[in-house]
């Protein structure tokens, strides 16, 4: 006798009040997870202790924090940070896209050049590279355009060409390009080869194959890693404080150098970094959603 027939028989006649119910009629009780509740309790206590400390520990010195948080000095420093991030990202990813396409090209020459670039700029610590650019005038006082080893037509003073900000953008962008190149290349090779083959079989022009067929699908895996890079560059701009560029971190250092209120001023920088990173994460969410078209049923 099969189970289904038992159920249907009992369903038709209705179980007698005194009889033990059949297995198929028993209610289901979900598994309990008592340790989760213990975990929640522990975390809540720790968070409460931290918040309590923030409010009561005089070391945080909130009056000083609010005194500086929204001042003109901080805003202009924040603006420098944002500029460094935007220029570093845009130039870095543009150069990175070029490098990625070179590495994926069928030309061994282009492959080796791109590989060499990525090798070099991933090998040199960013801070070392930045200091090189900052001191470029020590190596080359003048740049000129002309025939190699021959006559020169135009001269620039290196110091006029790259101000400190220019040197910082250059260093950040060149560094970023090496990482962006690998992220973009990773995205492109993650697209099924059949997509390119179909595009080629249909005779779609080469540039269009890339921008219409491959890139939009590659964006799915480029975006999360790319956003990571942008956020990490945004915070990484604090490294250019070694070149005395008045970005956010340098500026709070200057202020606490004067008034010795180290912790509240570090908090000013921290909160601004958190606010802008949050904004970037929100942007990331919407951009990713846009590129997810056609990926779900």
């Amino acid at each position: 006798m099969s189970t289904t027939s038992v159920t249907s028989v009992s369903g038709a006649s209705g179980p007698p009040a005194s009889a033990v119910p059949l297995d198929a009629d028993l209610p289901v009780v979900a598994r309990r997870h008592p340790w989760r509740w213990v975990g929640v309790a522990v975390v809540l206590v720790l968070v409460a202790m931290f918040v309590h400390g923030l409010a009561t520990n005089p070391g945080w010195d909130w009056p000083t924090f609010f005194q500086f948080f929204a001042t003109r000095t901080i805003f202009s420093a924040l603006w420098v940070t944002v500029q460094l991030t935007v220029y570093g990202t845009v130039l870095g990813f543009m150069l990175g896209a070029v490098l990625a396409s070179m590495r994926l090209s069928s030309s061994p020459f282009l492959q080796v050049v791109a590989w060499g670039y990525i090798w070099a700029f991933r090998s040199i610590p960013l801070i070392v590279q930045l200091l090189f650019w900052f001191n470029i005038a020590y190596l080359y006082k003048e740049l000129s355009i002309g025939i190699p080893f021959g006559p020169e037509f135009v001269h620039f003073s290196t110091n006029n060409l790259f101000g400190p900000l220019g040197a910082a953008v250059l260093g950040l962008a060149l560094h970023q390009a090496a990482y962006a190149a690998e992220i973009i290349r990773g995205g492109i090779i993650s697209v099924d080869a059949g997509q390119l083959e179909a595009a080629a079989a249909l005779g779609i022009p080469r540039i269009r194959q890339f921008f219409r067929i491959v890139l939009p699908q590659a964006m799915r895996s480029i975006l999360p890693n790319g956003a990571n890079e942008v956020i990490s560059l945004f915070k990484g701009t604090s490294i250019v404080s070694v070149m005395a560029i008045p970005e956010l971190f340098y500026q709070v250092q200057v202020i606490y150098g004067r008034n010795s209120r180290v912790v509240p001023l570090l908090m000013v920088a921290t909160v601004w970094y958190i606010v802008l990173t949050t904004l970037l994460s929100i942007v990331q969410y919407y951009v990713e959603r846009r590129f997810a078209r056609g990926t779900t049923r």
Binding site: G194, A198, A201, L202, I213, Q217, F291, R293, T295
Partner: peptide, 17 residues
């Protein structure tokens, strides 16, 4: 030249996006 030849693949290869 290819745009004058229709090619149908085993795995369809439709553009998913």
């Amino acid at each position: 030249q290819r745009s004058q030849v229709g090619f149908v693949f085993q795995t369809f290869n439709l553009f998913g996006h």
